[in-house]
């Protein structure tokens, strides 16, 4: 790995001012499990001049319930979320999503803040030494369109003929389904607005903006998370899905369903939500909801198989909320 400058930030303010000092030439490091891989492979055309370590900032590692609202510090390790009994009971989809992320070691290192800010896994983008200077890196095109796109978006690109890389996070769809609010050094953003993308970005964060905490409102009803990957550990999802369902007299009163790894950002399946409202969570109900979820799919040359998988994930996430 090439060398770089290194700053231990003592406070969020210090971290922000360090980021400003470097302009867009510095990166924030927390768990480091995503960032260091990118740096070792020299994925990006520009190598960071400095890393701003935020692990040295106290007070960002916590899990708290206050009046049913779950608050999680950005530096909270995924393993701590996955194994927290209160989260498992109160916001099961998030605990399960954290639990199904990567492997034990990576969950012990990786933070929730880092997990939602992680970069795409597209194998063109990530090919070492910037082998493919793609659209996302300021280049001219997305190589996946004519290449092997078996793990790419089935719901279109970021822009027309744009980047087709999917968002790889397991916790992101859970946060969207659970209607989380993400607080940064500048503002509070609803999770579903957080993952807005341009051709080159995965989140709405500015260069000098850092996630500090995540709040999840009390969940009335149940939530569930399911994931499909080739391996049961280590892997990023081929498709995952989180659902949060409110039931009233056996019928669905409220529904939030979010798929991930199928689109350039977590894909809230609004049509699927509409389809299940007022219905029971039974075979017929989940089938019609799942069909609605993928009705708008536009698969690429190698990834049509993801459509039935996405459908199955929606069904199972809903059944998990029964």
């Amino acid at each position: 790995m090439k060398n770089f400058g290194h700053v231990n930030a003592a406070t969020l303010e210090e971290a922000v001012s360090a980021l400003r000092r470097y302009g867009n030439r510095a990166a924030v490091i927390a768990g480091g499990t995503d960032l260091l891989g990118k740096m070792k492979d020299e994925v990006l055309p520009a190598y960071p001049e400095a890393l701003i370590n935020i692990k040295t900032i106290p007070g960002l590692d916590f899990i708290r319930y206050e009046g049913g609202t779950l608050s999680i510090g950005a530096l909270t390790r995924l393993e701590d979320i996955a194994t927290n009994d209160a989260v498992r009971n109160g916001h099961a989809a998030l605990a399960e999503a954290a639990h199904r992320t990567a492997s034990t070691h990576l969950r012990e290192m990786g933070t929730i803040g880092g997990n939602i800010c992680q970069d795409i896994r597209c194998w063109y983008y990530r090919n070492p030494q910037n082998r493919f200077p793609c659209l996302r890196k300021g280049g001219g095109r997305c190589y996946a369109i004519d290449g092997d796109n078996r793990y790419h978006s089935i719901f279109g690109g970021s822009v027309e003929k744009g980047c087709y890389a999917v968002h790889p996070s397991d916790t992101a769809p859970a946060l969207v389904a659970l209607d989380a609010t993400i607080t940064t050094t500048r503002r509070a953003i609803r999770a579903e607005d957080f993952f807005q993308v341009s051709a080159a970005k995965t989140t709405v964060l500015e260069d000098d903006e850092i996630v500090s905490r995540i709040d999840l409102p009390p969940l009335v009803g149940k939530s569930a998370f399911v994931k499909f990957a080739l391996r049961k550990a280590i892997d990023f999802p081929i498709v995952n899905c989180a659902a949060a369902i409110g039931l009233s007299r056996g019928k669905v009163r409220s529904a939030r369903i979010c798929l991930n790894a199928v689109h350039v950002k977590p894909y809230r399946a609004v049509k699927a939500e509409e389809a299940i409202i007022g219905k029971a969570i039974d075979e017929a109900g989940v089938e019609s909801s799942a069909a609605a979820a993928v009705a708008g799919a536009k698969p690429m040359s190698h990834n049509a198989y993801m459509v039935p998988i996405a459908k199955a994930m929606v069904k199972r996430a809903l059944l998990g909320c029964k």
């Binding site: 896994r121 194998w123 063109y124 493919f132 190589y143 004519d146 290449g147 092997d148």
Partner: peptide, 14 residues
């Protein structure tokens, strides 16, 4: 990659 002949998954994640 069918278009470029480059190995796309030369690591133990992919």
């Amino acid at each position: 990659c069918p278009a470029t002949g480059v190995v796309l998954n030369g690591n133990l994640i992919d």
